[in-house]
């Protein structure tokens, strides 16, 4: 049964791709989703039920615009550094500890960090994230944590609680 946990998600993506409610398309979608579940269902490790809790949906909706804002800021930041004649960068590899419990949450955090101002996740080892930062500010791990991870971690902790 576990391997069919992602079945509704596959069906949803199929309906998005075909964008039709004709019975033929839906039947094909059900068959395709079943086949995909049988093939890789055990492997995919996505399940729908925990995603449906209203708390998660709410915090995801909060997270998306927040993330988008940071993403645009990241681009303007990089644009400034690139176009400035002196290329004012101060790069370094830093380590921060995250308190997020699950692996999925850590991966989302690492991806978000990669897409936001001047930071690029280089490695994830258990709960420590190694990050390449284009403009290192501060001295201690606490400084780094506050500047790079904290804003995302707060919301992600709500989503994956």
């Amino acid at each position: 049964m576990k391997r069919f946990a992602a079945f509704p998600l596959f069906l949803l993506v199929w309906m998005g791709l075909t964008w039709s409610l004709h019975w033929q398309d839906l039947l094909a979608g059900v068959l395709v989703s079943l086949v995909v579940c049988l093939l890789v269902g055990r492997f995919v490790a996505l399940s729908v039920l925990p995603m449906l809790s209203p708390r998660r949906i709410f915090w995801t909706l909060v997270y998306l615009p927040f993330f988008f804002y940071h993403c645009v800021r990241a681009n303007l930041d990089v644009a400034y550094r690139v176009l400035h004649p002196d290329t004012p960068i101060r790069p370094g590899f830093i380590r921060v500890e995250t308190t997020l419990p699950s692996r999925a949450a850590r991966v989302i955090l690492a991806s978000s960090i990669t897409l936001t101002p001047g930071t690029l996740a280089v490695d994830l080892v258990d709960s420590s994230l190694y990050i390449h930062w284009i403009n290192v500010r501060g001295k201690t791990h606490a400084d780094y944590h506050r500047a790079v991870v904290a804003p995302f971690e707060r919301i992600l902790k709500e989503i994956f609680r």
Partner: peptide
């Protein structure tokens, strides 16, 4: 490499 990856990833994704 690492700085170039920064520019490449962020700007090109957005």
């Amino acid at each position: 490499v690492y700085n170039r990856l920064q520019a490449g990833t962020k700007c090109v994704t957005l």
